[in-house]
Amino acid sequence: MAGIHPGGSGNSGTADGGAVLIESNASPTIVGCIFSENETQADGGAIGLKGSRVYIANCTFAGNDAGTDGYGRGGAISVNDYNANFNIVEDCEFSQNTATGSGGAIHWLGDHFTIRRCTFNHNSASSTDYGGGIYASPHGTGEGTIADCEFIDNSAGQGGGLYVGSATFDIHNCVFYSNHAATQGGGIYSYGGTADVTNCTIHQNYAYTEGGYPRRVHDREHHQQHHMDQQVLCRIPLSSRKGHHGIRRRHLH
């Protein structure tokens, strides 16, 4: 298969893609696969993607590691090329994947992507890096959609559940619960760009220093609607403990 270098489970490598490397304008479909306990010294514990388009559905990514001998991004999947456009990941499960850099489960630099109906559970990035579940920072003109996903018990330095930056993002119908950040943005960290967050539940996430807006919500029904720069509309259930912060936003100057 031109441009595709396949592996399986329990593989170990020194280059991108511990199990599968996709490059050179390849466009594979990956459906119903299990990627478990793969590792690489570089990026993409299970799958590495460069300059290609991929459709991934109904797959399980469990216990994959990136950066086993140094710095690696994307414990399960790493997309390291802004020319990797219009990729789709849907109906997948990501659990206990780790990266020594950013993106405990997914590290995404490609433009125009969609991630939907996926679960991210107990994934972790470095305590000094970003995005325990997903790190996504496409090129300035890129767009990303993250919909109907669950982020539970993921951890990173910033953006315990999700880190998004430098592009336009549509994040809707997602759940962020019990994610942790060593510094900022227990649930979500948004840096630059535009992030529209709608109809999301953000509950009992924790950031050691600050989570940004909102810090704590009080109302009779334990949830209410908030606007963030007239772009964000979320349901934030009442947290029973102090210091549980959902969203950290930072604007580029």
Rank of each mutant, 00 (worst) to 15 (best):
G101M: 12
G101K: 02
S102Y: 03
S102Q: 10
S102I: 06
G103Q: 09
G103W: 05
G103C: 03
G104I: 02
G104T: 02
A105R: 04
I106H: 00
I106F: 02
H107S: 14
W108R: 10
L109M: 06
G110Y: 01
H112N: 06
H112E: 04
H112A: 02
F113E: 01
T114C: 01
T114A: 01
T114Q: 03
I115L: 13
I115M: 12
I115N: 09
R116Q: 15
R116F: 02
R116H: 05
R117E: 12
C118W: 08
T119W: 01
F120V: 02
F120K: 05
F120G: 00
N121P: 00
N121Y: 11
H122M: 10
H122F: 11
H122K: 14
H122A: 12
N123E: 06
N123Q: 09
A125G: 13
A125M: 08
S126W: 08
S126Y: 00
S127N: 09
T128K: 00
T128Y: 08
T128L: 11
T128M: 11
D129Q: 15
D129W: 07
Y130S: 07
Y130C: 07
Y130T: 00
Y130L: 15
G131I: 06
G131E: 05
G131S: 08
G132D: 05
I134K: 06
Y135I: 03
Y135K: 09
Y135H: 13
Y135N: 03
A136R: 02
A136V: 09
S137W: 04
P138A: 12
P138D: 13
P138N: 11
H139S: 15
H139T: 07
G140E: 08
T141W: 13
G142C: 05
E143I: 09
E143Q: 14
G144S: 08
G144C: 05
T145A: 10
T145N: 15
T145G: 01
I146C: 09
I146T: 06
I146N: 13
A147R: 10
A147E: 15
D148S: 12
D148Y: 14
